[in-house]
Design a protein around this nucleic acid. Sequence first.
DNA 1: CATGAATGAGTTTTCATTCAT
DNA 2: CATGAATGAAAACTCATTCAT
Lengths: 207, 207, 207, 207
Amino acid sequence: MSAIEERSSGKSTARAQAQRARILDAARACFAERGFHGASIANIAQAAGISQGLIYRYFTNKAAIVHAIVDEQRIRRGETLAGITSCEALVDVVIAKLQNWRTRSGGSEGDFDPTLFLEITAEATRDADVASVLAEHERSIWADLSGLLARSAELRSLRLSTGELQQRTLVLRCLLDGMVLNWVRDPGIDAEQLRRSLHVACAGLLA
Amino acid sequence: MSAIEERSSGKSTARAQAQRARILDAARACFAERGFHGASIANIAQAAGISQGLIYRYFTNKAAIVHAIVDEQRIRRGETLAGITSCEALVDVVIAKLQNWRTRSGGSEGDFDPTLFLEITAEATRDADVASVLAEHERSIWADLSGLLARSAELRSLRLSTGELQQRTLVLRCLLDGMVLNWVRDPGIDAEQLRRSLHVACAGLLA
Amino acid sequence: MSAIEERSSGKSTARAQAQRARILDAARACFAERGFHGASIANIAQAAGISQGLIYRYFTNKAAIVHAIVDEQRIRRGETLAGITSCEALVDVVIAKLQNWRTRSGGSEGDFDPTLFLEITAEATRDADVASVLAEHERSIWADLSGLLARSAELRSLRLSTGELQQRTLVLRCLLDGMVLNWVRDPGIDAEQLRRSLHVACAGLLA
Amino acid sequence: MSAIEERSSGKSTARAQAQRARILDAARACFAERGFHGASIANIAQAAGISQGLIYRYFTNKAAIVHAIVDEQRIRRGETLAGITSCEALVDVVIAKLQNWRTRSGGSEGDFDPTLFLEITAEATRDADVASVLAEHERSIWADLSGLLARSAELRSLRLSTGELQQRTLVLRCLLDGMVLNWVRDPGIDAEQLRRSLHVACAGLLA
DNA sequence: CATGAATGAGTTTTCATTCAT
DNA sequence: CATGAATGAAAACTCATTCAT
């Protein structure tokens, strides 16, 4: 699907890749700030420091940019769970990302933007393509979370049936999503309290 | 704040009230379907079966409609926790609402729309008015959840310190948000599994 | 022409007359403040303290209101030159009216509004009806000014040929218009200096 | 102030300049014909033979166009008084411009449009920006007229005090404004009579 | 007589997209 | 490859006018 929407037919030079990335960076920032509908191509072009017309050499559509960004999130997340061996560590990493986001607040770089995350989730209810990419992404997250829980359980010599593992993965998934939502909704949230609360909840998962 | 944005200065006839409701119903549907920014006044007018101009007799702005809808959610939720005495029951109620939403899917009536919920949360990051209404709403939800947990604990003769109560409220809040998010993201989610999983998690909160 | 545009067919009760006047007063104020195009029927209705619909019972059109107002100016001016016997006195009266206008500034009553005067003159270039009413009005002013000059000349035992009288009338007319224009254009204009300057110019007319 | 309202940030190509001029020409014609508020962007775009959207590449606002046109008048007038050495000559030039305007009547070119002049004066009472540009313009006209009178007086070996010079400048200003107003108001005005009458008045200024 | 709800055409303005250069 | 001028459709919003009550 996204293959259809890319403009580059066949080969894509390093330069082309760089331009695409440049546009996507700008788009991510704009979308996070104003939403998919609120951000205009003009905004993105300006943020990327290129002309509006040029964007259409790399993406057929505004929708194509959205799709590319959704796609990207999957890749971006890849490393997140790399060295993590406990749910508590995962909670800490997520909180660190959230704090990082609130601190820079508009600064361009940063690998996770909860606003964008919300925007994508909302868009998934409207755009079937986004929904399917997101669904695939979600399956991969599930596998990771599930694996993390399985390993953690093993470390504690805890035997979990498949059903029990699924149940706990689902709860963990809800907790993580809930953290993000609460963080976005409450700008004055106490990070430390959130951390401690979720650590307790994590402990409960493997009790 | 929303009082400022209403058009009717002072008195509002039954007819006016009905028209306002008519417009808000249409707007809610459109916003849920296309998002706050994706839905146009033309969409709303058509959905309401009236002319575009007429909308401005009842709302100064598109923003005023958004604010009115956000405001409304607070009231709509009021009764939700009325007769509920346990977290498990709360989970069941939320799931019932989510199932109700998925079943009708576009049908006008229904007291909770998770898509709208997402839309509002996303909008809160951009519109200070929405953010403040949402924050107030959130405080009231917190009070309700906190009270629910306190009562549940008491029933089980469990003594919770203020800190412990706060911690558990936060986790419960995250779980509820997470449920909604996962429900929206995964159209094929197994309601029964979700229910069971969250019941277990709830039990863990008061263990 | 204005007879066509009035709504009342035949008799018009005292009440009807009063309502018309009420509307015209409001319209005059609105037009002066925002211009013929800038002022809306809604503005006028609100200023008059009546409903929009009611306006159409007394005037077929927004244009009809404009025409009525232009018409009216003729009558309003009637008394202005009544007791005046010299150009200097006329200048003083005009300046007094201008000062009166600047002082109240938005206050409803007042028999001459230079902004409205400008608005009407501008409209005359676009609306043939306005132009013809204004032309007739102008002829009457000419007659008055001409008469004033003739009498003043006679007082000074100055014999003026028809041509000389016409020439002086034209100059006097220009001076009066110029006063108004300069007054409007320069909010800080020195009334006393203007008065003195025009007195000198008036003296020159009968030298 | 008008610099803020131009769209082109910094450089402006020859093409851009030409387009701006094209739009301003069209706008001038439309504004003269229908007034600032009566003329729509659609009118202007059509007159300029371009799309409505394109106008906004060159001007941020409809107001910006109005401001640009007001600004322009100052420049356009610059040369008017260049070679003029007597009030009578000035009167002749103004009448020539007025005749030129009536003759073409809607033809695009022409350096003075009395209708536009009225429109601008009226707008100045409503738009502070227009007022301030007009005020500056007016100061420059005053300086010119004052200089003209001073030189004329000198030629006739007439000594004028500062006060006397001011008084005569003010009268001259009124005469010129009055000429324009009367010309606009009376389409059948006799140019030759006007010319003669004002010559006499001018002579009176330096008597 | 009077209201004010309702409309449809109009307003200014934005924006995704195309295309000549 | 890159620009930025250009467009047409659509956005939000206004307004003169009509009409049921």
